[in-house]
Write a protein that binds this DNA or RNA. Sequence first.
RNA 1: GCCCCUCUAGCUCAAUGGUAGAGCAGUGGACUUUUAAUCCAUUGGUUGUGGGUUCGAGCCCCACGGGGGGCACCA
Length: 545
Amino acid sequence: MVPGTICYRRRPAPAQRDANGLRHSAPHPVRSGGVSEPEYTNSTPGGDAISGSGLVAEKARRIARVDQLRADGVEPYPYRFDRTHSAAEVRAAGADLEPGTETDVAVAVAGRVMLKRDSGKLVFLTIADRGVDVQLFVSKAVVGDDAFAGIKALDRGDWVGVHGTVMTTRVGEISIKVERLELLSKSIRPLPDKWHGLTDPDTRFRQRYADLVVNADARRVFEIRHAIIASIRSTLVARGFIEVETPVLHAELGGATARPFITHHNTLDMPLYLRIATELHLKRLIVGGMDRVFEIGRTFRNEGMDTTHNPEFTMMESYEAFTDVHGVMELTEALITNAARDSLGTTLIDVAGEQVELTDPWPRVRMVDLASEAVGETVHPSQPVDHLRAIADRHGVHCDKAWGSGKIIEELFAELCEKSVVRPTFVTGHPVEISPLARLDPDDPHLTDRFELFILGKEFANGYSELNDPVDQLQRFEAEQAARDAGDNERGTIDLDYVRALEYGMPPTGGLGVGIDRLVMLLAGVDSIKDVILFPTLRPEANPQ
RNA sequence: GCCCCUCUAGCUCAAUGGUAGAGCAGUGGACUUUUAAUCCAUUGGUUGUGGGUUCGAGCCCCACGGGGGGCACCA
């Protein structure tokens, strides 16, 4: 997100539900003296808090206004407002009106006060309702003196509901001529700058509510995110997939190689892991005959954080019986192309300054071929480890002693090729050693029937023909366990229950995993995963104020 | 873990080592067609925290904390 593009006016800010945190309990601490919270104490030498300025005084002033309203018999936090139109509907209703037109179209609309222009006996309020703003035209002569004074006393950030009629001003601005205005929720904390919004990334992530109120780009990203997820869901459902939910709390780790979060269940008195993948549960469902399943869910990895990694992130995994890796690649292209069309309205997207037409076929290249090209000679997992290690050394690629030929080839690819794969590309044929759950390539027993989708040098998706031979699977698990015992603590363990499931028989199956957050980053055109997660993981604030 | 950048009023930003300022918001006033309304007046600061150097520190040095970016590690 480019801070310079953030402003309220150029792109109307959203009206986000968040007012329920503003409840305040009388008596008013400034005057009662019974509450010792420092934020409400007097900070103005020689005067009471209300006469000063700054946040403390501003909040005190607005709380005093709340008290005054109650004293006048007006509830500043009423329960309900029945509206007849959204701001967008009002805009549609007034779209064809000439400037300076009044109508009899009666509307009841609610929104948050974003701007206030007071010109004496007229007040113009801009309210935001679900990201669309509409102007309120308030005339003292229409609403009466008392109500007019109350409207003048409104603050930016207050929620209001109005009854009035649709009109246009002399310059053609579609407006609601207010007959009656009702305060729906008094805001006691000032909104960020009406023109510049919030720019400090720390504050934007910590106070996402404020970010969403004033920064339309933030709201836009999450609308795109929603559209992408909805699109993925509809593409899958249209293909006969059903959505399922599998456990987040796992007694065994599996389905990926990653360090987990560990928690504890009191009654069972046992450790539990937050899942690092949904794969093994979903394939158990394929064994059970569910045939086509998917899950869009949070997974957790207790590892580093950077612009593409958050400790909790959203993954879509799907499993389809009777297809293989080629079917999964076709599905992947369809999912992402549809997601772009449904969220952006186009399949022509910008990838690092290049225009990419997603409907063009995506290249499919074997990992061993890319690695061979990079090192200038043929590499293949059938070659001796020492030979490959020598090649890696020559190219400055560090290899762990415990690694076999296949892992070294992956490392060569990761170090020498990965970053240069910018346009969407299926990298295929991963070595068996690094693919404990994938089927062998029918033409090459050293490789698997697998792909990873790379865009912008990052992995976006991973899929393969699922290994369904229970004997082979057990041997692969044993190899994982052996590698783990040999000191590679990132490798997996033996999941005997999963092997038992396979023993009942799993049909040929193609499986897919897609990193939703990265996909949203790609399509929304943002560089940080924190921009696509509403509440990214952060250290807690010492003293929220 | 290492390196670089950053932190000043509620928000957005200024300030050669020499009295901490502006715009917005707020407060008081004017204004019946405004559009970041405008105009007049005005309030508001433990410069992230703690040390140090200096006659004097927002600025220089050190440490710590938050955040951003990069590298490493990890996958």
